[in-house]
Design a protein around this nucleic acid. Structure first.
Length: 503
DNA sequence: AAAAAAT
């Protein structure tokens, strides 16, 4: 089995850029002969200021200073020269040596193969690189193929960055895996594969998923160049000798903060990374996520030596294009009524909706309650059979269902352009803590709406014990979440939706 | 004591 579906739908809406760049005079690639790079990896350990911050509060400050003149000399050297457009002032790029990178105004600037370019234009219908793509792709594709840590908005086109990275770093003639991408969920791995295989259409490069299936895997060695999967299955394929690491030259972590978080998949990820480093001389590592909290970032920068990095200012991450609301609900029943009377009534008119619930139990309870009220609704969570999960996602992506109840299985990375309404039926909490919100999950949930700069709205349904959590979230992101005056007034919801530009 | 992926 190879080349997964071409029915990739629009899995990557997150791509062509919303901002049309003024045709600035195109900068030619300067000084091709990069001066020989000192090994900066050693520097990492004793350069505490390499990390912009220890505290969140100071981070924004330092990051923005990087764009002006308040830098240390050492850092000034590392700042890329292409950060000259005012509109890029919210992105900070730091390179680990003096390799010159030039922002890519067009995909032609990237020395991609003609076949790959054709896939980009004809299949994907991209016109030009998005901001994150323009900056990250030269870093990814230019020798010496430095590692990269990249943080960028939800829906800003990260998938395309690492998809192109993988596609241009493999040899189609070599029938062996050369690129590996690890994702936190089966759904995300499948989605990423669809993007990659669509983009690869004319290249002769094949790809496949290493995710849990209903049947146990065959032991036949993988011959596709690109493998995208979930950690456990990838490990399994490695141990049964199905997945060879010998020719691996690029390793991608999607949702990297989660993949390397103690509470996430850290052990799996590290073991895979270690094995690859053992068996292939030089393997480029790319880490992508919209979020890197301080703890994870600290850890990540220790294990990935000698890297370039891209950071987006925190306030830029809180998604201005998506309006956030809070709705005080006296009890659980009120929440159900809001879903029934507002979301089903109003939400249907303007696209698709995802209702996030923190537990599988909660998801299935809500599902049952709505079904009992006579509403047909679909629900996805990890406890369902794989086939059912696939079907539910496909129906939603095909637009056959309007409203989807989901656990956090879809909180990260799930890309469906038509979703412009997200309901937090409850708020995400940090593991084992009932009074501490999970800010990352919150941000990722919100990011399911407003893909690629589209308009969107989030309604947080709050009972009394959740108001404090909401306040903490508002404080953390420094954003004011507007209040819908009354949970049972349809006009209030209409006003909110109009304000969000959805009605 | 949570989701997910796994075992």
């Amino acid at each position: 089995m190879a080349d997964a579906t071409d029915s990739a739908t629009e899995a990557t809406s997150e791509t062509t850029n919303a901002v049309e760049a003024p045709e600035a005079t195109f900068k030619t690639k300067q000084s091709q002969e990069a001066e020989p790079k000192r090994s900066w990896g050693d520097e990492v350990d004793n350069a505490p200021d390499e990390e912009p911050s220890a505290s969140t509060a100071s981070e924004e400050k330092v990051v923005s200073e990087l764009n002006v003149e308040g830098l240390t000399i050492e850092e000034e050297e590392k700042i890329n020269t292409f950060l000259d457009e005012p509109e890029d002032s919210n992105v900070t790029a730091v390179t680990s040596d003096k390799t010159p990178y030039t922002s890519a105004k067009t995909f032609e600037d990237l020395n991609l193969s003609p076949e790959l370019l054709k896939g980009i234009y004809v299949e994907m219908k991209f016109q030009k690189p998005s901001k994150i793509q323009a900056i990250s792709l030269p870093m990814i594709l230019t020798p010496p193929y430095k590692n990269l840590i990249a943080q960028a908005h939800n829906g800003s086109g990260k998938t395309t960055c690492f998809a192109l990275g993988m596609l241009s770093r493999v040899d189609p003639k070599l029938k062996a895996p050369q690129a590996l991408c690890i994702c936190p969920t089966r759904e995300l791995a499948i989605q990423n594969l669809q993007v990659v295989s669509k983009m690869a259409k004319y290249t002769g490069i094949s790809s496949e998923c290493a995710v849990p299936e209903e049947f146990p895997p065959s032991k036949i060695a993988v011959m596709t160049q690109i493998v995208i999967g979930t950690p456990g299955t990838i490990r399994k394929w490695m141990t049964i000798g199905k997945l060879s690491l010998r020719f691996m030259n690029i390793l991608v972590f999607d949702e990297a903060d989660h993949m390397l978080d103690e509470d996430g998949f850290r052990d799996y990820s590290l073991r895979i990374m270690r094995d690859i480093r053992k068996s292939s001389a030089h393997c480029q590592v790319l880490l992508f996520s919209a979020t890197f909290n301080d703890t994870v970032r600290n850890f990540v920068t220790r294990i990935v030596e000698d890297y370039n990095k891209l950071l987006v200012k925190k306030e830029e991450l809180s998604l201005d294009s998506v309006k956030q609301y809070k709705v005080y609900c006296p009890d659980e029943l009120a929440k159900v009524m809001v879903v029934r009377d507002r979301i089903f009534e109003l939400g249907e008119k303007m696209g698709q909706t995802i209702i996030f619930v923190s537990t599988k139990r909660g998801a299935s309870d809500l599902h049952k309650a709505l079904v009992e009220l006579g509403y047909d609704v679909s629900t996805i969570q990890g406890g369902l059979d794989l086939g059912v999960r696939d079907k539910i996602v496909k129906e939603f992506k095909d637009g056959l269902t309007q409203v989807l109840i989901s656990t956090d299985v879809l909180a990260r990375g799930f890309d469906q352009q038509q979703v412009n309404l997200v309901i937090n039926y409850d708020l995400p909490k940090k593991f084992g803590m009932c009074s501490e919100p999970d800010y990352e999950v919150y941000l990722h949930r919100v990011g399911r709406a407003g893909r690629f700069g589209r308009k969107g709205a989030v309604f947080n349904l709050l009972m009394a014990d959740e108001t404090a959590l909401m306040e903490k979230i508002e404080k953390h992101f420094g954003s004011h979440v507007m209040e819908v005056p009354s949970w049972n007034n349809v006009e209030d919801f209409k006003v909110a939706l109009k304000t969000a530009g959805l009605l």
